[in-house]
Design a protein around this nucleic acid. Sequence first.
RNA 1: GGCCUCGUCGUCUAGCGGUUAGGACACUUGGUUCUCAACCAAGAAAUCAGGGGUUCGAAUCCCCUCGAGGCUGCCA
Length: 473
Amino acid sequence: MIRVRFAPSPTGKLHIGNARAFLFNFLFAKQSRFSSDDERFLFAKKNKGKIVLRIEDTDRDRSTLENEKDIIENLKWLGLSWDEGPFRQMDRLKIYQKYAGKLFKEKKAYYCYCTPGELAKEKEEQLLKKMPPKYSGRCRDLTFDQIKKYEKEDRRKAIRFKVTSKIVEFEDLIHGKVRFDTGLEGDFVLIKSDGVPTFHFGVVVDDAEMKISHVIRGEDHLSNTPKQILLQKALGFLTPKYAHIPLILNPDRSKMSKRYGAVDISSYREMGYLTESLINYFALLGWTPGGTEILNMKDLIKDFSIENIQKSPAAFYKEKLDWVCGEWIRKLTPKELQERVVDFGYQKLDLKIIEIIQPRMKRLDEVPFWTSFFFQEVTYDKKLLVKDLDKNGVKAIFEIILSQLAKITWKTESLKQKSRDLADRLDLKFRDFVYPLRISITGNPISTPLFESMEILGREECFKRFKNALRKL
RNA sequence: GGCCUCGUCGUCUAGCGGUUAGGACACUUGGUUCUCAACCAAGAAAUCAGGGGUUCGAAUCCCCUCGAGGCUGCCA
């Protein structure tokens, strides 16, 4: 049985890296690479993996409920669901203490009475001597008297793990064989002096308790893995399979950070990216499908394979995300787009409007740019009206338009036909003829198609704007 | 500093001993067109980080160097 987990710590909002890690876990758990007519399909479906959500909130200073909410809400928004949880580590303290007690009894762990100050000093001295910083293990074999003394001083104590020096080797699903010498590690803390487990201990205990079969997480945890394997061995746990996915970088290949641009999912939501596009793009970061790059969740579940994940980190390239999102907007039916626009917080648009903005949009937040002229008076610099023609030429256009369109059927096709005739009559290129009209109607040299827009606006409103333009000239 | 991981067009990547090093985004040009998009066509863009090997032959295998990132916490 495949069981994976997503274990964010609520010290920040759900960000791109998190979301992608969840996606990869999700896809791995849900994948069934057999088509429905393959007899193995049913088997695969029945044995689909489970994904558990675990909140690693043991950093009491930085974890907030607000962040936890953001994480959960945005996962849901992305359409990423989980089968079990959320479990909070802070609700499970007794479990960790139980296992720590076991290690203590078996003399695989010990109490450490060192103060933060002493530890810092020790490290500083090592650094000064150009030695690798490593806990000396001074509390490892305290005498009875020393312990008594420390206890009398009322020192707080943490529980440390005795690191045995050996070569730890494991097979990473993405990187292949990786080996570490744990002799380079000092004894590390299992339970902090306030009784809360550290990251390493919490992870190992929970992964075992939750029967996690595959740990799929960011590559920043690769170097942490040997410590965790050591712990698993000491506790008699099975070691799960590991897959460390490459990190996401800024476009300049520096470490992804807020400084560079948006990293939180909520920001992308606010920018009007479709969830489909975000999911699609995240999958593309470090993984390549064989054929088309535009894939929905179903396609991804079908085609995704962990072996094809790239080893090297990928830079987050917004231009490509924009393209993916544009593709997704064009894949929607007008009715669907209409709903998305409303969900995003704008007013409900007439389907006729939707149809003309759809091929032009990359993101939902472009709606005002394309449509505001439909709903409010346009303001523009009168200089805009005159481009390749002189003032009198432009005047002539408005005059002829006002007189000739007064009774015509107000439909795109007839408007276009009539306009062509009028352009001919004035001996003007159609584009030159249309240009000032576009400005007068939309206020912008870039807009939705003129005649479609005019049909939607209606004769009365259009005439108002034409007259307005004429007055400006 | 030590340890680990990674290194193919600007970006995401295909490639797994013999390819004109392929595709996608972005970019440029042309077509279409009432503008902008969309769409179609073409083009530019990679001394495969560098240097040594192995081999008839290396982006692919080995070694070294360089560069980037990660870990080295009573953060996760």
